[in-house]
Amino acid sequence: MIRLLICDDHAVVRSGLSMLLNGKYQIEVVGEASEGDEAIALAVQVKPHVVLMDLSMPHGKDGLTASAELKKLMPDVQILILTMHDDEQYLFQAIKAGASGYILKNAPHEELVGAIQAVAAGEAYLYPSATKKLMSQFMNQHSHTPADDEIFNQLSEREREVLGWLAKGYANKEIAQHLFISVKTVEAHKSNLMEKLGLKTRPELIKFALQKGLLHFEDE
């Protein structure tokens, strides 16, 4: 079961999410908080796998500050931002604060469940337009070097395929199904990629894959 802590300043939202998720989809709601400090204190007590965190909580500590503090205190907890703000500045700040995912409140409940499951499994989750915004930001801020080309040329064809799928946000199991290989093989390729490229985070991986032309998105 995925142990989930919900943090939102609206009691109706917390209650609705709890009714929607608790005891379903292998999710157990282990606590509810109305602001950031309460969420941090409660997380220490109930030890959730995932914290579903609202950004704007005017009557207490905001979600960004709480996320950053919680990640320092409990590095293994995964934070999924649930917000009404479809704004790239909030997105970038959430990632910097240590969030593993970012989803809008108007998303279908199936998408929310998938996002919770993804971050609980150690994957990152961004809704499609957020992914495009993130990659656009990296395009504008970063350029590759000849050393990048040399490293990229050392990757095998399979490693390049796995890199592309990872950068698009697919989970290891989904990549394994697409490429007809085992999950363990995907994990091995991922580990080798991170070591060869000297990368530590998914945003860095997205940046590198984008520079190498490995990401292609259909127009919505």
Rank of each mutant, 00 (worst) to 15 (best):
R3E: 13
R3I: 07
L4E: 03
L5Y: 07
I6C: 01
C7I: 05
D8Q: 06
A11F: 00
S15H: 08
G16I: 01
L17D: 01
L21Y: 07
E28C: 07
V29R: 06
G31C: 14
E32R: 06
A33G: 08
S34V: 12
S34H: 11
G36L: 06
G36N: 06
A39K: 05
A43H: 09
Q45T: 11
Q45L: 14
H49D: 15
V51L: 11
V51R: 07
L52T: 00
L55T: 08
L55A: 03
S56P: 02
G60W: 02
G60C: 02
K61M: 15
D62P: 08
G63Q: 05
T65Q: 13
L70F: 02
K72Y: 00
M74A: 13
L80E: 05
L82R: 00
L82P: 05
L82H: 10
T83R: 00
T83N: 00
D86P: 05
D87G: 04
Q89T: 13
Y90I: 10
F92W: 10
Q93I: 04
A94V: 03
A99R: 01
I103E: 00
L104H: 01
P108K: 08
E110G: 08
L112C: 09
I116G: 02
A118E: 03
V119T: 11
P128R: 13
S136N: 07
P146W: 05
P146G: 08
A147Y: 02
E150N: 10
Q154Y: 06
S156N: 11
E157A: 15
E159M: 13
E159L: 08
R160F: 04
V162M: 11
W165F: 15
L166V: 09
A167E: 09
H178N: 14
L179G: 10
L179A: 07
I181F: 02
I181V: 14
S182Y: 01
K184D: 14
K184S: 15
T185S: 14
T185Q: 12
E187N: 14
A188W: 01
S191G: 06
N192A: 15
N192P: 03
M194F: 07
E195A: 15
E195N: 15
K200N: 08
K200H: 12
R202G: 00
P203E: 01
P203Q: 12
L205H: 02
I206P: 06
F208P: 02
L210S: 13
Q211S: 10
L215M: 12
H216W: 09
F217A: 15
E220K: 10
